[in-house]
Design a binder for these strands. Structure first.
Lengths: 130, 130
DNA sequence: GAACATTAGATGCGCACGCATCTAATGTCT
DNA sequence: AGACATTAGATGCGTGCGCATCTAATGTTC
């Protein structure tokens, strides 16, 4: 068991996290919206679908690797479907399940957005500690 | 000028930040709400008002040390006023300005919430790097 | 001092979120 | 097979957010 961290250090670390997060998230949200018409959550969802092996994932699997609540993810996917960046298909084995599959348009949009994403990170994510 | 950071490292650091933030923020939001009837932004606002020298600050000064947009801060203060944790007073010098002052009730509420806040940080904020 | 620009903060609006609940499919137990 | 519990995901609802705009006070210029 590690030694107890001092309260002030704990709070300071949280403060730092909070402001770093907001600095980056705010910019990402705005820029992704303006330049590509997607939200940060939508980008992250597309990213999960391209980065990982298969382009097709169950909602549950997707949820596991994400920070969103189940309902928020469901709605995020709905928006992506509406914009034709993703498709929902029913799962054969378990008909309650839903597969999410990225479309060709989705893949293109993601590729464009990725550049913007990296640029924002490079500009606003504070340098690595150490 | 530091050497260019590799793209994957940049993204990884952002991912880590994103998930750490959400882990902590979600719990804080929920627990502060249930146990003390305040939001995270409200707690942070009270915290600014007690931690820093004076208990009385202009909206602008407050905004500077916070991550909230101007409008969000304005509404946060409105909620605090409604719950009698804070008072708005007009600034004499510049009558457009507004002072925000913590009340006795506000100070008490903050003191209680602080314990909860620390407990959540201790439990959910991942240990310091290094 | 009248016209215009700027500034501090409040507010209308639309949106993404989490929580609770709902629906439909699957598992379980007798 | 029939009754009940559980699970996957969708949806109603209320809330806090950012952006754009509004109002009122202050500064500026002629």
């Amino acid at each position: 068991m590690p030694p107890m961290e001092r309260e002030t250090d704990l709070v300071e670390r949280w403060r730092a996290l909070l402001s770093s997060y907001n600095e980056v998230a705010c910019h990402l949200e705005r820029v992704l919206g303006e330049a590509h018409g997607i939200t940060l959550s939508e980008y992250e969802t597309l990213d999960r679908l391209t980065t990982q092996k298969c382009d097709k994932r169950r909602m549950q699997d997707l949820a596991e690797t994400m920070y969103l609540s189940q309902s928020a993810l469901s709605r995020t996917v709905s928006r992506l479907v509406k914009n034709e960046l993703v498709e929902r298909t029913h799962c054969e084995d378990d008909r309650r399940g839903v597969f999410v599959e990225i479309t060709e348009t989705g893949r293109e949009r993601w590729a464009e957005a990725r550049k913007t994403h990296l640029a924002v990170l490079a500009e606003h994510l504070s340098p690595a500690p150490g």
